[in-house]
Design a protein around this nucleic acid. Structure first.
Length: 437
DNA sequence: TCTGGGGTCCTTTTCCTT
DNA sequence: TCTGAAGGAAAAGGACCC
């Protein structure tokens, strides 16, 4: 505790000073945060299983219509490597909805890329081989590479299926060569045990580490120091900042701000005026390479949801039975997810997307937590009544939020009987316990 | 032209209470 | 009793990320 360090003066100094002093005393070494990004993860995992597809245009996506089982019918798992290329399905034969999850570099040369509609991709590169996403396999590799990193550097923050932040600061050897030595060690271990490559950026914080990891792709390592911000970061487009997407990028461009350096030159109040208090201030800090956020090794989920886009647009009246069945299934899936992960929710919501792609959401917070499928279905049903249903729908989703863990709820369950067995407990007491969570 | 699914976080609006 | 301000919580929408 800083209080002990500062001895009798501890009670007289302000909290910020204590924190600053503690940081100086404990570290003495520069903060080194790494961002690790697997190279074309989905496609790379797929190529490991189908090496004969190496160098060919391949897109991954459309899982629902291209079943792996059908693909492998008559071949079996052991023959996977030897399926003739000619037998793989082609994009030109693809019918229906969906987007490309990822594409190999050979396919990208035709202009095909992530998040592109399958039908558009089929026009650009009809001969491309199309494979379904195998999420079980992707998840297996995700766990594997994360566990390999954890053995070498345990302070890890999950950043999705194929990315992590790693705190090198206090790892033995983590400071050597600006972090390059440890990065190389991790890169080599991942390749040896999975056959996959990754790119790593090391910098004083997460924001810069994320940008650094893009400097040398694939299979690269790059180090960015605080003093490099003006020379390496400022010339880049604002869109390179993690958190500035298409909308903010467009808005900035309209204000004549294209590079990160131009963003850094703005007045804080000017940015706050255009982007709001939190976003405006954050943007300016980001442009200066400032980011104090820690590598969060643990986080609690905020919500759990299931949604599905229909094969064809459905109408609430005309396709009532079909829609009802899907709705019930989504509720059951959310309930199962909550139960499997040990959570219950107090807010249940729905999401729907109309045929013109407009989205509507409704949600409802109830007094008691639940993870029961029927209860969720009832609450979601109430939400559904509050939304216009005269137009065809393309998507329906169910969401659970305001979550509590089963442990917290069991504490509540233990408290409740005590309150209720007490002499004439007023109803307000029970309500007070509810509000604890 | 067509636009998945699972998340987090922020902003704005609305409603309720004081 | 009516009105308005202020503030918080919930709801709705949307941007962004992988």
């Amino acid at each position: 505790m800083p209080a002990a360090v500062f001895g009798r003066y501890a009670c007289r100094v302000s909290t910020p000073f204590l924190l600053e002093g503690a940081a100086l005393l404990t570290s003495g070494k520069p903060r080194r945060i790494a961002h690790l990004d697997m190279d074309a993860f989905f496609a790379s995992v797929e190529l490991l299983r189908h090496p004969q597809l190496e160098g060919l245009p391949v897109v991954i996506g459309g899982a629902r219509r291209i079943a792996r089982e059908a693909l492998l019918a008559g071949h079996g798992e052991r023959a996977m490597h030897s399926i003739p290329v000619a037998e793989f399905p082609r994009l030109k034969d693809y019918v229906g909805r969906g987007v490309i999850t990822t594409a190999t570099y050979a396919a990208r040369q035709f202009g095909v890329g992530s998040a592109m509609g399958m039908m558009k991709a089929a026009r650009l590169c009809p001969q491309a081989i199309v494979l379904p996403v195998d999420f079980d396999e992707i998840r297996r590799f995700s766990k594997l590479f994360k566990s390999i990193i954890a053995e070498l550097a345990p302070q890890i923050q999950d950043r999705g299926i194929d990315e992590v932040y790693v705190d090198f600061t206090d790892v033995p050897g983590g400071q050597r060569d600006g972090g390059r030595a440890l990065a190389r060690l991790i890169q080599r271990a991942i390749f040896e045990k999975t056959g996959l490559t990754c790119s790593i950026g090391v910098a004083p914080n997460k924001l810069l580490a994320k940008m650094a990891s893009e400097f040398d792709k694939p299979n690269g390592i790059s180090i960015v120091q605080e003093s490099d911000v003006q020379s390496l970061i400022w010339p880049l487009n604002v869109r390179k900042i993690n958190g500035i997407g298409p909308r903010a990028g467009e808005k900035l461009a309209a204000l004549g701000i294209r590079t990160i350096g131009e963003l850094a030159a703005q007045e804080r109040q000017f940015l706050i005026g255009h982007f709001g208090k939190a976003s405006g201030a954050w943007m300016l800090d980001a442009a200066w390479g400032r980011d104090a956020s820690p590598v969060a090794t643990h986080s609690e989920p905020v919500s759990m949801s299931r949604e599905t886009t229909f094969e064809r647009d459905l109408h609430a009246v005309h396709d009532k039975a079909e829609l009802g069945a899907i709705f019930t299934r989504l509720c059951a899936q959310v309930a199962a997810d909550l139960q499997r992960k040990g959570y219950a929710a107090k807010t249940i919501g729905i999401k729907l997307r109309y045929d013109d792609f407009r989205t509507a959401t409704r949600d409802l917070t109830v007094p008691a937590y639940t993870s029961d499928a029927q209860t969720i279905r009832n609450i979601a049903g109430q939400c559904l009544k509050r939304v216009p249903l005269d137009q065809r729908l393309r998507l329906l989703g169910v969401r659970a939020s305001t979550l509590a863990t089963a442990e917290k709820l069991s504490v509540f369950e233990q408290i409740k009987p005590i309150v209720q067995t007490g002499r004439a407990p007023p109803a307000t007491k029970t309500i007070a316990f509810y509000s604890l969570f």
